[in-house]
C-alpha cells in the first residue's frame, strides 16, 4: 500500500514536473528577451520562479489531489489509492530519470556543503583578515571571490590589491560584499537541488541564466554603492585585463569562472531606471494562487493527468 502510494506520488511528480519544465523551456527564448529589459533583481526573481516551478507545481497539484480526494470528497476508491494510471515505459523512464537526478543532486549538494565548509576554513587560515571587510589571500594571482555558505567571506588576493586603485577596490568590495550579503554561493547550492526537477538541458540553461543574474545583481548593488555604474563596468574590464596579462594564467584563475562579462557590462551601462518587477509579494501571491487553484481544480487536473498518460507513446 505504502509502496504503491509512493510510486503514484513519484510518477505524478515526474509527469507534472517534466511537463512544467517543458513549458518553461518553451518560454525561455521569450524570457531572455524580456529579462534584458528589467532590473537584475527582477531577473533573478523571475529565474528563481522558473527554477522552482516544476517542483512547486508538482507538489501543489498533488497536495490539491490529496486534499480533494481525502478530505473534501473521500471515496473508497480514492481512499485505497486505486488510481488507474498505468506505469507505461515512458512514464517509468521519467520516474527513473527524476529519481536519479534527485539522488545525484542531493549527493552533490551534500558534498558541496562539506567542501565549502572545509575550503572556507583553509582559505581563512591562509589569509589575513583586513579591517576593510575582507580577507587578504597571499597569492599574486589577481582575483577576488566570495566563499562560504552560511557565513560567506570576501577574499581578495594580494596581486589584485596591488594592481587596482582605491576606486576600483571600492567597486570590487561592493560587488563581493553584495554576493556575501545575498549568500549567493548558498543560493547556487540550493538551486541545484530544485533544478533536479527540470529536464537536464532546461536545468542547465536556467542555471547559466541564474548565475549571470546573480552577478548582475551584485554589479547593480556595487553601482548603487559607489554611485557610478560605468566605473564598476570599467573595473570589470580592468580586472579582466589583469587576468589577460602576459604572465600565464594559472589553473586557479582558469577555474574561477564568473558569468558573461559582456552581458554584465551592458547591464551596468543600461540598467538605470529599468523596472524592478515582479515584487516578492506578487510572487508569493502567485504561489498561493497556484495552491488554491490546485485544490479547486483537483478533479479536472487529475483527469488531465490521466489523459496525458493514456496519450503517452508506448
Amino acid at each position: 500500500m505504502t509502496a504503491r502510494l509512493l510510486l503514484l506520488a513519484v510518477s505524478g511528480t515526474a509527469l507534472i514536473a517534466f511537463a512544467v519544465s517543458l513549458a518553461v523551456a518553451a518560454c525561455i527564448p521569450m524570457l531572455r528577451r524580456r529579462l534584458d529589459r528589467v532590473a537584475p533583481s527582477a531577473q533573478a526573481r523571475v529565474l528563481l520562479v522558473a527554477a522552482l516551478a516544476p517542483a512547486f507545481v508538482a507538489f501543489a497539484v498533488q497536495a490539491g489531489w490529496a486534499i480533494h480526494f481525502h478530505l473534501i470528497d473521500p471515496s473508497p476508491q480514492h481512499a485505497q489509492h486505486d488510481c488507474p494510471i498505468p506505469l507505461t515505459p515512458l512514464l517509468a523512464a521519467g520516474v527513473l530519470l527524476l529519481v536519479v537526478r534527485l539522488v545525484v543532486a542531493s549527493a552533490r549538494t551534500t558534498v558541496g556543503a562539506w567542501r565549502s565548509y572545509f575550503t572556507l576554513r583553509s582559505l581563512r587560515r591562509a589569509s589575513v583578515p583586513i579591517r576593510a571587510g575582507f580577507d587578504l589571500f597571499a597569492t599574486a594571482e589577481p582575483t577576488a571571490f566570495v566563499a562560504g555558505l552560511l557565513r560567506p567571506r570576501v577574499f581578495l588576493s594580494r596581486g589584485l590589491l596591488a594592481a587596482v586603485d582605491q576606486h576600483a577596490l571600492a567597486a570590487i568590495l561592493a560587488h563581493e560584499t553584495a554576493h556575501a550579503r545575498r549568500r549567493d554561493p548558498l543560493r547556487r547550492l540550493l538551486s541545484a537541488l530544485v533544478l533536479a526537477f527540470h529536464l537536464p538541458g532546461v536545468a542547465q540553461m536556467i542555471d547559466t541564466l541564474l548565475a549571470r543574474a546573480h552577478e548582475c545583481v551584485a554589479d547593480a548593488d556595487a553601482a548603487r554603492k559607489v554611485g557610478d555604474g560605468p566605473r564598476v563596468a570599467q573595473t570589470l574590464i580592468q580586472v579582466a585585463r589583469l587576468r589577460l596579462a602576459p604572465a600565464p594564467a594559472s589553473a586557479h584563475s582558469a577555474a574561477i569562472l564568473g558569468s558573461d562579462l559582456d552581458a554584465r557590462v551592458r547591464h551596468l551601462l543600461a540598467v538605470a531606471g529599468a523596472p524592478d518587477a515582479p515584487s516578492v509579494a506578487l510572487l508569493a501571491a502567485g504561489a498561493a494562487g497556484v495552491v488554491v487553484l490546485s485544490v479547486a481544480f483537483a478533479v479536472p487536473l487529475h483527469a488531465a493527468a490521466e489523459l496525458a498518460v493514456s496519450l503517452l507513446p508506448l
Partner: peptide, 17 residues
C-alpha cells in the same frame, strides 16, 4: 579548494576569464 568550489559553482568570483 577554491578551484574545486569554483568548478562546483560555489565560489562567486568578481570576473570571469
Amino acid at each position: 579548494g577554491a578551484r574545486e568550489l569554483a568548478s562546483r559553482g560555489l565560489l562567486a568570483a568578481f570576473v570571469e576569464l
